[in-house]
Design a protein around this nucleic acid. Structure first.
Lengths: 128, 128
DNA sequence: CTATGTGCAAAGTGTTTGCAAATTT
DNA sequence: AAATTTGCAAACACTTTGCACATAG
């Protein structure tokens, strides 16, 4: 399939690249609406799906809603139980995995989803 | 709130304890229906919520559906991309986490969700 | 007896889709 | 010109909820 580079698609991707809050489709829709006021939510969903297929963005499953992330290099997430914020955690030096043991058990790991759950600095110190 | 031990609740919990497939609410509903034929899906959802509040079961978020797990001790999951099965992975000797570094970064970790994604033995060897 | 739980059906929420018109290439 | 994409609204899938009746304690 020969993809087109529509304004809608470009802008949706731009909006997502310029935030680090891992937004929902609805949040992206509201942002994009500021520029393309008659865009529909369906178009946002369709383009997020396309961008995901192209490997340009990731879908994060957070409860019943999907969130999206334009950062596609391998990294982890931290979810604050107080403010519900999702933060990026660089991979390096955080986790060590025993792949050999997993393979021995019959699980051939290709990917890894890690979500740390806890309290972020702001919430802990009452800065909010 | 003073909880009652209804047949519905007991059976839902039993069904979930006796499987390791991390079923959906609907699967549980179908099983329970074999014994209590007029139970409603709403009752299944309500009781799963109660059991979760009581800490007896866990809710696992898998795409748009919730799955449930009566195993509440700390463990990880492996999700096969081929058969979509979810398997339990014992915690021991699988992962090493640098909590100190995370705390240093301002993330105070209380819990950890890990999902390994890959191919299970059965799918890899074509046993299915 | 009374607070808690149930079955039912309707409503809610996030997401997807069919279609005719519009747009990209 | 042809194929892709759009806006719109309706449809969908999963989950929650209001209510009158039932039941555990």
């Amino acid at each position: 399939m020969q993809r087109r580079n529509t304004n809608q698609r470009k802008l949706i991707y731009e909006v997502l690249k310029n935030t680090n809050i891992h937004p929902t489709a609805d949040w992206i829709y509201e942002q994009v609406r500021k520029e393309i006021s008659n865009i529909s939510l369906g178009t946002v969903y369709r383009n997020l799906k396309v961008l995901k297929e192209e490997g340009k963005i990731l879908e994060i499953n957070d409860g019943k809603q999907s969130r999206f992330d334009a950062r596609t290099d391998k990294h982890f997430h931290f979810k604050c139980t107080s403010c519900a914020g999702i933060y990026d955690i660089d991979k390096e030096g955080i986790i060590e995995i025993n792949d050999a043991k997993l393979a021995q058990m019959g699980y051939f790991v290709q990917d890894l989803d890690v979500v740390f759950v806890g309290i972020c600095y702001k919430c802990k110190t009452g800065e909010n």
